[in-house]
Each structure stands twice: as structure tokens, then as C-alpha cells.
């Protein structure tokens, strides 16, 4: 692959997916796109890139983008965000949403579904405390292939052992050969959609909680700031944003500020005036 071809690929990926690929990631491009090139019948990565340069092959473009996304995930990943959702946000919503009995949650980079299904299991465990409530989980990802997989709710033995307590496996999954399928009632709780965070996501509507974990790390700062700004517009004024453990809003977007007591949890900056999140902060200290 010539420097011109690599530069084209880097620009193509940045424009289409937000993913920033520097020269130091050339090995990653070659290892991930090599199989795509072979499968599509190209003799080399150069040939594949030339085809992308000519344009018009949307299926190939999508395959390239999906191959470059990272789909690492597991059930209850990092623990703390789920504890915060369960012990900090839900008790607050029990008070602030008591009239409408409705909470909308968005998993903005759901990969193969472990994060939204973890939330669905957690909400199932809490069902007795929220009779008649509707918890809507919208789960989106850039890669249509992983979204299709997530929708099946089918996981390998390896996947169900990563982060998922055995009691929840026995309770919510059925064995199908050497794989495990999550219960239909939990699958039905999650609406999966393919969605590119670079594009307009306002049609998804307003959310009370947004999980946007371990995806902003792949973007440059202006892209992070833009996405955070638009998430802020989709979030209820007393809602909450949960980022990955290595991610922050500091220096990126004034729409959010870190929750004073809970690392990884962010609240709308305007929340200082009204806000349940800060009332809560003092309550839990």
C-alpha cells in the first residue's frame, strides 16, 4: 500500500466512522483489511483501496468500516457503571419519574449486545421495585454485522463466562448446543439499530441515561466534542451519561460535568440548579 493509498484509507475511515488511524496503526489496517481484500477477490490491499477510491461500492465500503471497528465487550464490563445505574440512578428515577413510570436508556456503542443485555438482566432483578414501569433500552452500533448478532442474543461459552455470574447464566439463558441464548423476554426489552454516531441521531428521541463507553477513545477531539454536544441535546436535564473508565468530558464539551462522587458518571452541566444528580451526590456521600 503506497503512502497515498494509506492516506486515502485513513481519511475514508475518519470521514465515515470517526475512527482515527495514524501511520503507527498501519499493521492494524493490514491485518484487519487483508481478509476483506481476499474475500472480495482483490489481489492486494492496494487493489482494494483503489476500488474504494473510485467509489460506488457501498457494500465494500461498509465491510471496510466494520472490519476496522473494535467490538471488545463483555457482560457487566467494569462493574461500576452497572452499580451506578442500579444504586445511584434507579433510586433517583424512582422518585423523579414516578408519574410517567418510564425510563429510556441508550447504549450508544452496543457491539454484540452484552451491555444492553446486562442492563436488561439488572432491570429484571429490580422488577419488583418498579411495578408497571417501562424501561426502554435502545442499543446502537456502527457495525450492522455485530448488531445482527446482538439481536439473536446468542453467545459462545467463552462470552458467557466473561463477567456474567453463573446464577444469571442459569436464570436467563438456555443452552443451544455449545452456545447460550438469552431469554426472549430480555431480548424483547432491547431495540437494536445500526447507527453511525457521526450522523444525526436526534430521531432516537430523548433519553434519561446514555451509556457511551469505550467508543470516544477512537475519535479525535473535535469529533468527541461534537458527539458529546449532540448527546447532551438528547439527554433529559436530570439525566446521566456513562463513559468508559479511560474517558472523560473534561476539556471537550461544556454540556457535561463529572458527577462529584461517581467516577465515569457525568451529568448535564446545567444540572447544578435543579438536579437530582447533585441532590443525590450529597445523599450518597
Amino acid at each position: 500500500m503506497t503512502p497515498t493509498e494509506f492516506a486515502f484509507l485513513a481519511r475514508f475511515l475518519k470521514e465515515r466512522s470517526g475512527i482515527v488511524i495514524g501511520e503507527d496503526k498501519r499493521y492494524l489496517v493490514e491485518s484487519r483489511l487483508g481478509p476483506i481484500a481476499r474475500k472480495a477477490g482483490f489481489a492486494s490491499l492496494s487493489e482494494l483501496t483503489q476500488r474504494l477510491m473510485r467509489g460506488g461500492d457501498t457494500a465494500l465500503a461498509q465491510s471496510v468500516i466494520e472490519a476496522m471497528t473494535t467490538n471488545e465487550t463483555f457482560f457487566f464490563r467494569d462493574g461500576a457503571p452497572f452499580t451506578q445505574f442500579s444504586d445511584v440512578l434507579l433510586p433517583e428515577f424512582a422518585k423523579t419519574r414516578a408519574a410517567q413510570k418510564r425510563v429510556r436508556i441508550w447504549c450508544a456503542a452496543c457491539s454484540t449486545g452484552q451491555e444492553p443485555y446486562s442492563l436488561a438482566m439488572l432491570l429484571d432483578e429490580k422488577a419488583a421495585q418498579f411495578p408497571g414501569w417501562r424501561f426502554e433500552i435502545v442499543a446502537t452500533d456502527l457495525a450492522s454485522e455485530v448488531v445482527d448478532r446482538a439481536r439473536t442474543g446468542l453467545f459462545s461459552q467463552f462470552e458467557v463466562q466473561r463477567g456474567l455470574p453463573i446464577k444469571l447464566l442459569l436464570k436467563h439463558f438456555t443452552q443451544e448446543g455449545d452456545r447460550w441464548r438469552i431469554a426472549a423476554k430480555l431480548r424483547e426489552r432491547v431495540q437494536f439499530r445500526t447507527l453511525n454516531l457521526l450522523r444525526d441521531f436526534s430521531p432516537l428521541g430523548q433519553f434519561d441515561v446514555v451509556f457511551c463507553r469505550n467508543v470516544l477513545i477512537y475519535f479525535d477531539e473535535p469529533t468527541k466534542a461534537d458527539i458529546l454536544g449532540r448527546i447532551g441535546k438528547q439527554l433529559a436535564p436530570d439525566g446521566a451519561l456513562l463513559l468508559g473508565s479511560a474517558e472523560t468530558v473534561l476539556g471537550l464539551n461544556a454540556a457535561f460535568r463529572p458527577h462529584p462522587s461517581h467516577r465515569g458518571l457525568f451529568v448535564p452541566a446545567a444540572a447544578g440548579a435543579a438536579p437530582s444528580a447533585f441532590r443525590l451526590a450529597s445523599a450518597v456521600r
Binding site: 461459552q157 467463552f158 463466562q161 466473561r162 455470574p165 453463573i166 446464577k167 447464566l169 442459569l170 438456555t174 443452552q175 455449545d178
Partner: peptide, 26 residues
């Protein structure tokens, strides 16, 4: 790794269950 074995182990007093093969993370 059959459900019946896992259930039996849990009823006998196990706290968790790992199906081989495993790795450090599991």
C-alpha cells in the same frame, strides 16, 4: 458444561462455575 451439571454443582454449594477451557480473564 451442561446445564444439569452446573445446576447440580450450585445446589451442592458451589459459589461459581468455570467451563473449561478458561483464561486469566475468566
Amino acid at each position: 458444561n451442561d446445564v444439569s451439571f452446573i445446576t447440580r454443582a450450585m445446589r451442592a454449594g458451589a459459589d461459581e462455575y468455570v467451563m473449561k477451557p478458561f483464561d486469566k480473564e475468566i
